[in-house]
Design a protein around this nucleic acid. Structure first.
Lengths: 292, 292
DNA sequence: GCATTTAGCTGACTTTAGTCAGATATATAC
DNA sequence: GTATATATCTGACTAAAGTCAGCTAAATGC
């Protein structure tokens, strides 16, 4: 009754029936679920037919027929792919966009209704983020992004807020040596964001310097994604990026108030070194040589 | 991207594909999903055919055929209902029990695998409990139970543990005036447990006395079920039970370290009164007259 | 006791999903 | 340029799910 496995299975049952209800509501628009799913995949920007087939796990014959039925309804138009005339590209027609918007409204209304029925909104959302991250962890993609893009700025904001909570004296970005964005763009450095679906779950910056080494800065993992090995994946990706940029030596600074970070560095071949800058926040300094 | 609705929808997507994977694995035993679901419903103790049909949302014709196919496989036996010969009752045969056990093993293995892949086990389980409670809140049943049964004892244990955390001086049951179990059984009183599926989510005791009133004791709601209005439902159920037992006056004591409880009592017609006992823990005392 | 309601069963049917073996056109390897 | 691989489509098929009308037998209302 109260053992972990029963709790997971109770969750599965609860969620199965909720998912079933949403699927059923999708049938309300007079179209079988298969066709509705294809329409929604196209609406969400998956235009390549092979990609949709792969995403939905459909047989090519079935896929073809579903596309035909949506075309007959006047909801989509298909054309050949620019670079490869064997492939097909599907796009919503005007009527298709209207129909897609109706499905979106249903999904949004359902989600809003769920939130409105419950008073512990933030706790519920945090729990959903945690579970969604756990379920999709194989599908968390690490993308090199502009350090000033929306996703990057969101991650940095969360990172600063967390430092503020965890440092006794708080954290003020303007007192820290804030890396210049252009030092975290190729060819001097890079900035990597971990994306799960549409949600940024972590980041790390590689900052080029003129002192014969590059620095790793701003390593952050969202609370809902901790325990998934994402920190290590981000560090590995940064090292790979550094190697490709021809960087031979990496350094970083951190604070002993963040023990899990120090732990990660020590267990992945970083060596503690003396202080190499005058930033007021860090009290631990590490170095790692890149094998090429 | 980060608004609440998107977060809920991201959760929906993550969970939909996980649920789909479990369903697919059920097909591995060479039986269509419909028949597997009926077999499992029977295995979980739903023997009444009408009840299963209702639970799974099946048409009576379809249901009948699924039962026939399970019977042909030798997995179930059906008999007439004792009290009503129109109704049918289904039970697993020996082979059916074996087959059901195989499905259970699959589900358990899947759940264990999920837990094993993640290091934040307790956080994940807490998140799952929270969401499962939120999704099934209409299906939380309030059952009168024996105050010494497993479910009741679990709730009381959690309740004492929580008082220990929330009272500055801690909480020691032996110092409190622990109500005698027989005072919380009809006809003197009752004990009500809120059950969601198989998980107890809250409790409340109605304790009869010889002083012309009954006391409400041990009101507790699991952290994962707060914000669902369960405390109020438990109190309402207790008042109804008191009315049925012919009780005219209710009293209770509580502590100002539990502000949400005081809040609930004040907003539901309870009136603060002077201390009426010498229990060392409470510092707030309430009374409510039952209208009959 | 008789009309009505209820639970389940059966036959006949439709829709949806999915499979598989070619066919066609295009791209790629060498 | 030819052989091979790839992306999609079509026809022919099956399995599963679901619907509906009518039937039987038992229970219920009055």
């Amino acid at each position: 009754m109260l053992d972990p496995v029963s709790r997971v299975r109770r969750f599965n049952r609860a969620v199965t029936s909720a998912v079933g209800a949403l699927d059923t509501s999708f049938l309300g628009r007079g179209r079988p679920l298969g066709a509705a799913r294809v329409l929604n995949a196209i609406g969400h920007g998956r235009t390549d037919v092979a990609e949709i087939r792969d995403y939905l796990g459909l047989d090519s014959g079935l896929m073809s027929r579903l596309l035909r039925s949506l075309e007959d309804e006047g909801l989509i138009e298909t054309t050949s792919h620019e670079d490869d005339a064997r492939r097909r590209v599907a796009r919503l027609s005007r009527a298709g966009r209207r129909e897609f918007a109706a499905y979106e409204t249903m999904s949004n209304t359902q989600a809003e209704g769920f939130l409105a029925r419950h008073s512990q909104r933030e706790a519920l959302l945090a729990a959903m983020d945690l579970i969604a991250s756990a379920l999709t962890r194989e599908r968390i993609a690490l993308d090199e992004m502009d350090p000033q893009g929306d996703e990057s700025r969101y991650c940095l904001g969360e990172y600063y807020a967390e430092l503020g909570r965890r440092f006794q004296q708080g954290f003020d970005v303007s007192l820290s040596r804030d890396p210049d964005a252009k030092d975290m763009r190729p060819p001097r450095g890079t900035f990597i964001v971990a994306m799960s679906d549409t949600l940024p779950l972590g980041c790390v910056g590689l900052k080029g310097t003129d002192h014969g080494y590059a620095e790793i800065k701003r390593l952050w993992v969202a609370p809902s994604a901790r325990g998934l090995g994402l920190g290590r994946r981000l560090m590995d990706a940064t090292e790979r990026a550094a190697r490709e940029l021809g960087i031979k030596l990496l350094r970083l600074d951190t604070n002993s108030a963040l023990p899990e970070a120090g732990q990660l560095y020590r267990s992945t071949g970083w060596r503690e070194i003396p202080r190499f800058n005058d930033d007021p926040y860090p009290d631990l300094f590490f170095e790692k040589r890149i094998q090429s």
